[in-house]
Each structure stands twice: as C-alpha cells, then as structure tokens.
Computed example of a mutant assay.
Amino acid sequence: MAAPSSARLLKLALPLISEHGFTRVALSRSVLHLPTPHPEPLSDAAVSALFGHGNVARKTLFNAWLEGGIESMQGSTTSASVKEALHARLAYNEPVLEHLPEAFALLAAPESGLPPIDSVPALKHAARVADQACYISGDPSNRLNWYTKRAALMGIYSAAELHQLNSPKTAHSFLDTLLSTSATIDSSVEEVKLFSSYILRSWAGIVRSRDIL
C-alpha cells in the first residue's frame, strides 16, 4: 500500500488542532485517522521528513489551516455578501481560538535574525481574507477603489479577529460595528493607515507575549 501523502495527512490533522493545537503532535497523530489507521503516531523523524524540522512543521500546519479558512468563507451557498463571508471566517476560528495567539506569534516570528517581527504574514493573511470576501460577493470595485476597499476590509477583519482573541463573545458584534462605518473607511486613506498600524502593533504584542523568539 502506498504511503499517504503529506497533503492528505495535513488534511487529516486539521480536525485535531482543537485538541492538540498547531503542534507536531497533531501532525503525528494524523495517521491514526486514515481509512486504515496506522497502529501508532508518526515518529518525530517522520514528521520532520514530511512537514519540516522544528517549528517549520507547525507553520506548515498553520498555513494549511489558514487555507481551509479561505475555503470556509464560501459557506453552503454559491455566493455571499462581504459581511456574511467575514462572519464565516470569524466563525472558522472558534474551535481553535485558544491556540491562535501562539500560532499567530509563531507565524510572525522570523526564521532567524532581524527584524524581530515579520509583518508580511499578517498582511498576507488579511489580504487573502479581504480578497476572498470581495470575490465571492461579486464586488465590482476597480482601479484605485479596488485597492482602497480591500485595504479597508483587511483592517476591519484583522481588527475583529484580534478583538476575538480577547473577547470571543463580542467579536461578531464588533465586526458589525466596524462594517457599519465601511462607507467612510472606503474613501479614507487615513483610516486605512490607522487600521494597518493597529494590526502591526497588535501582532507585535502577541509575539512579545509568547515564548516564541
């Protein structure tokens, strides 16, 4: 019988995150959920061979989970509004919420050296969510408005997600509040800059609060 692919094992590891976090343990136990389960979890050497050494494997798992989050925004319908898509993405976080601060800190920590905090993953994550929300809603924005609107949605979603880490029960209402001002934010570059600054400061705080670096 052919050995299972790393992609298949990553998919099997995703439901294990709620219990084991974004860890090598979750990856090692993925083989226990094959149609014909392995008798024991993968060895640490096997996890490294399939997914990378040390924290690289954990980042691989987190990135696979983030990809699943993009898919979750579509929901069960062929189209959705921007608001529905962003709420669906927040809901996707809920089963693993306790593990997200450490995972975000891990993603923002550089492989080595400087800078002490890598802002690129945070911005890429927010940009993908914003792009997907606009795509599935059939957003017609173009040219400058295209960039401004997506930048605004990046800020709105990221602010709601960061709020969710501290106050899960009010995250959806907080998102609604931010979206209710979107008409103003849409045309205000200064508001977009304010959101971006908030996002980066918040991610920096998450990294400093975790024993990642």
Rank of each mutant, 00 (worst) to 15 (best):
G69P: 05
M154I: 01
R128L: 09
S137R: 05
A109I: 10
I199L: 12
P41A: 10
F174T: 14
L162E: 00
V189Q: 14
K149E: 03
V82M: 08
P41T: 09
D186M: 03
I17P: 04
G155P: 12
P110E: 08
P95M: 13
F195D: 04
A103C: 11
A103W: 04
L179H: 08
S81N: 06
P121L: 14
K83F: 04
A49I: 01
P41Q: 09
A171G: 08
R8K: 03
T177G: 15
E94A: 15
S43R: 11
V96G: 07
N166G: 10
P37F: 05
L178H: 08
H87D: 14
S202R: 13
K11P: 00
I185W: 06
I70K: 13
S173T: 15
H163Y: 09
P41N: 06
T181F: 11
V56N: 02
E94L: 15
E40Y: 08
C134K: 02
S196D: 08
P116G: 10
I70L: 12
L175P: 12
P110I: 09
E94S: 14
A151T: 06
P39C: 07
R29K: 08
E40I: 01
E191Q: 14
R150F: 00
L32V: 08
A46T: 07
T170R: 14
F195P: 03
L114M: 11
P121G: 11
R29G: 00
V56Q: 04
L179Q: 05
D131N: 13
L123D: 08
L153M: 03
A109N: 14
H20L: 03
S72Q: 12
A151Q: 05
L213E: 06
I199V: 15
A2W: 11
L194D: 09
A7P: 00
S76C: 07
S188K: 10
A91H: 15
L34Y: 06
E71T: 15
Q132A: 14
E102M: 13
A57F: 00
L14W: 07
S76M: 13
S81W: 05
C134D: 02
